[in-house]
Amino acid sequence: MKEFAYSRATAVHDALTSVVGQENARFLAGGTNLVDLMKRGVETPDRLVDVRALPLDGVHEARNGDLVIGATTTNSDAAAHPEIRRRYPALSQAVLAGASGQLRNMATVAGNLLQRTRCAYFADLSSACNKRVPGSGCAAVAGVHHNHAILGASPACVATSPSDMAVPMMLFDAVVHYETLDGKGEIPISRFYRPVGDTPHLETTLPDGALITSVTLPSAAAGERSRYRKVRERASYAFATVSVAADLVVRSGQVREVRIALGGVASHPWRARIAEEELRGGPATPERFRAAAEAELSAAKPLPHNGYKLRLARNLIQSVLTEIVH
């Protein structure tokens, strides 16, 4: 583990100031991902600025009815919040499907949005990895990629995002709010994660030196019947193989509104807009759900070991939507 400087910020402005001009400084919140990667030498910051003591904790309702989740709110607190459970149940379900109780007590909402892939080659310094060392290659394409991406990947990188929480964030059109020394800004989550392309090391559109201050859930996007379903290789404490967050409103057997987001299939949570478009206004039947899922997945490019994810994602979309109808 490389030696590093550590400081604790008590005001947002201090936190922003302490990373200015330091290319290799990182904000530290729960540390459940960053510290692990530092121990392995994958992350090698010179300076950590601990933002845990900043006044960015807690969930409240804004005047316009949006729900504001402070950046340092723990995953546990977010999952347990009554308004999140009532209006955005898929988010609460997703957070509780992730990690363990101990990790959720440490991990923060902003940190979760930024967690790195669990691709084994990313974590192994002796392997080629374009995400860790740009230009070094990708060991996963020819190697073991059982749990890698089927959508939106590139020859440069086939890693997936491990986040459960980010999947319903994508479903609910969350907005990421940040601050830099130049002022405040916001990014809709649909534009927060960059396409992989040939720059897999560039993961988000967050400006340099920016600190996430909150994530808001628009009141118009609430979905009281929304659901999150995660499939994994054991009943607990494993990353998703494929997960689905979905919300569906049916009137007289017709789909009035539908939203679907997938986890475990791409470098970031994947909004299934093609499937949504296929379903909107049509009959709410399992056959239609399946056909819509297949339309979404027609662009998928599975690798030799992960073709099963196509079937799994299709079946899961069908099954979750069918459950919501019933």
Binding site: A120, G143, E233, R234, A235, S236, Y237, A238, F239
Partner: peptide
């Protein structure tokens, strides 16, 4: 590479309590 790629308890799964 000829090497084990799941040499930790996140990658090498055994039953969790659940």
């Amino acid at each position: 590479s000829g090497r084990q790629v799941n040499a930790d308890f996140a990658g090498y799964h055994f039953a969790a309590n659940a």
